[in-house]
Amino acid sequence: MIIKEVTFGTEEQKKTIALRDKVLRQPLQLQFSEEELENEFDSYHLAALNEDDEVVACLVLKPVSGTEVKMRQVAVEETQQGKGLGQLLVNFAEFFAADHGFELIQAHVRETALDFYLKLDYKQEGEQFEEIGIPHYKVIKNL
């Protein structure tokens, strides 16, 4: 297993889009728009690849300011869930963000994932809100 940054517009990055679509969008009967994906040009795309070079987990880091980054679209292949890969990927993202000069990481997390982030020392900020039609919470963590 290797976790690395993949370059926007490459085949590897397109594989992360396919995984995000499969895990996060299809269950909600949603699709990415071309514009939405094009707006990720200035984000960092991180992927976990298995020994067959298949993307099995991924996420996006979108700079919010010079010191703050937003973690988005965390997805783990269904067959790999519950094995610690999500935690490994999020930990990698935190080190990656800190290495790039960010001091704070934030995310809008689904209600079903809130406990996962709280166990990783993220702090809930504010009340529940709706995003893409489902309950979310904002979480933050100092890097």
Score class of each variant (00 low, 15 high):
R110F: 01
L49T: 11
F8P: 03
E34R: 12
E54I: 15
E125D: 09
K70T: 07
E11R: 06
Q26P: 00
E131G: 03
A113V: 06
E35K: 15
K83T: 12
K62W: 10
M71Y: 08
T7S: 14
A18E: 14
G133K: 10
A93I: 01
K62D: 08
Q73L: 07
L104F: 14
D21T: 13
E130L: 15
Q81Y: 08
K83P: 06
E103I: 12
H45A: 10
G84L: 01
E125M: 13
H100C: 00
D115C: 03
F92V: 02
Y44C: 03
K70V: 03
S33I: 09
V74M: 14
E131Q: 13
F129I: 13
K70G: 01
I132Q: 06
V64F: 10
F32E: 03
V139Q: 06
E127Q: 11
L59W: 04
E125I: 12
K22I: 10
V76E: 01
E51I: 15
T16S: 12
A97V: 05
I140K: 09
K141Y: 01
L85V: 10
Y117N: 00
Q13L: 07
E40T: 12
F116M: 02
S33Q: 10
D115S: 14
H108R: 11
L104D: 07
Q13D: 11
E131P: 04
Y137N: 03
Q29R: 15
L118N: 03
K119M: 05
K14H: 10
Q73F: 12
L88D: 13
T79W: 10
Q124I: 10
V56D: 05
E78F: 04
A107W: 01
A18P: 09
L61F: 09
I2D: 04
E125Y: 13
G66W: 06
E130D: 11
G86F: 08
K14F: 06
L114G: 03
F102S: 00
F95A: 09
K123M: 13
L143A: 08
Q106G: 12
A107H: 00
K141L: 01
L143G: 12
G66Y: 11
A18Y: 12
L24M: 14
L37H: 04
N142S: 10
I2N: 12
E131T: 08
P63K: 06
F41W: 13
E94M: 08
D53K: 15
L88R: 14
L28R: 06
E125N: 14
R20C: 00
R20S: 01
Y137F: 14
K123W: 05
E35V: 13
V64L: 14
E5G: 05
Q73Y: 13
I17W: 15
L28M: 06
A18D: 09
Q29W: 11
Q13R: 15
N39I: 07
Q128N: 06
G82E: 02
S33F: 10
Q80W: 11
I17A: 00
G66D: 12
V139W: 07
G101M: 02
Q106A: 11
T112F: 01
G126H: 05
L89C: 04
G126K: 07
F32H: 12
I134M: 05
Q124C: 03
Q29H: 11
I2M: 10
E36V: 12
